[in-house]
């Protein structure tokens, strides 16, 4: 990694973020569990297996159509636990609050967090609060960590995608990113698009209970669907081909991305999952996802193949083929 300073691109969830992780963090922290780079760490405690994860939330603005930083902080960690096949059980929360934040704003955020906890059935059991002087933080940052229980026989990981697996997507892409960007200074535009921020532990449980042979789950947050598919391809050594006409994109997201010159495949989601399922069980898993209220628009979007050259391909709407590459740096609107 050539940069001598941390850039916004290092936080984009794309390739530059991955180089920060591989060139620094994985060289300094060498634990094999960390190296798996899954959504959660899967740990053995006695005869039980536990999923453990942490995530920080710095979204700006704090409130956006369809959600807020509080709901995001709970759903994000609940989903990371669920994506490891775990049943989320407890979460912790750490606040870093800037001097001067209005208490009424804080209260709104806390109530929203409590609502998300109740919906997901996962209580906040421990926490911490720090206040920093004005200018040292941007209103409020929230970190949440979570613990989940993994039943016997469940083996979910980004490196388990197998030859012949079907790739499932639980709904439309780009909704969260567009909803947040629409409020950002310099870009302000009206849009019917709202964030899809939602807890998905119920959906994951339904898929596991359906008996379908599932190999991997992941929620495509920062870096979007493109990052998640490339991570699966890299971790599992497979080539993934998706059919562009099967990937649901709402007209609002398409319109906003066309206007700003963005690729919907790289725009963030906060209430969607990608699943890699054995081909024979694809329909069963799809049915289980569609039964969940956040999975009505789920589709089978592609397949995985064994390869020595892991890559993601798109068969385009006009019948040709192209590469789907990971977002490299920070996502910026283009004019040209």
């Amino acid at each position: 990694m050539k940069d001598d300073r941390i850039l916004l691109a290092h936080g984009s969830g794309g390739a530059v973020s991955h180089s920060l992780i591989s060139d620094f963090f994985l060289k300094i922290f060498t634990d094999p569990t960390l190296k798996r780079l899954d959504d959660s760490a899967v740990l053995e405690l006695g005869s039980d297996r536990v999923a453990f994860t942490t995530d920080s939330y710095v979204v700006k603005p704090l409130f956006f159509p369809g959600g807020d930083i509080g709901r995001l902080a709970v759903c994000g960690t609940v989903n990371d636990l669920a994506m490891s096949g775990a049943e989320p059980r407890f979460i912790s929360v750490g606040f870093v609050i800037e001097e001067g934040l209005e208490v009424s704003e804080l209260e709104k955020i806390l109530k929203s967090m409590a609502g998300a906890c109740e919906e997901a059935g996962v209580p906040v059991v421990t926490g911490d609060t720090k206040v920093v002087d004005r200018g040292s933080a941007d209103q409020i940052f929230i970190n949440t960590a979570g613990v989940g229980y993994i039943k016997d026989g469940v083996d979910i990981s980004g490196s388990n995608v197998k030859d012949g697996d079907a790739i499932l997507l639980s709904g439309s892409i780009g909704d969260h990113g567009v909803a947040v960007m629409s409020k950002r200074e310099g870009l302000a535009f009206g849009t019917p698009v709202i964030s899809d921020c939602a807890p998905l532990n119920g959906m994951v449980k339904a898929v596991l209970d359906s008996g379908a042979d599932v190999h991997a789950f992941r929620d495509p947050t920062r870096g979007g669907l493109a990052s998640t598919l490339n991570e699966f391809a890299e971790q599992s050594g497979v080539a993934i081909t998706i059919d562009e006409s099967k990937v649901p994109i709402s007209e609002g997201v398409l319109g906003a991305c066309e206007m700003l010159g963005l690729d919907p495949y790289q725009v963030a989601n906060e209430g969607k999952l990608v699943a890699a399922v054995a081909g024979k069980d694809a329909d069963r898993a799809l049915e289980a996802i569609r039964a969940n209220k956040y999975g009505k628009d789920a589709r089978i979007i592609g397949t995985a193949k064994q390869t020595d050259r892991p890559k993601v391909f798109v068969s385009t709407a006009i019948g040709t083929t192209r590469i789907l590459d990971m977002l490299s740096g920070e996502q910026l609107p283009r004019i040209c």
Binding site: G329, E330, L332, R334, I335
Partner: peptide, 8 residues
């Protein structure tokens, strides 16, 4: 101020 394209 600039267009996004110039940033990198």
């Amino acid at each position: 101020t600039t267009f996004g394209d110039m940033m990198k």
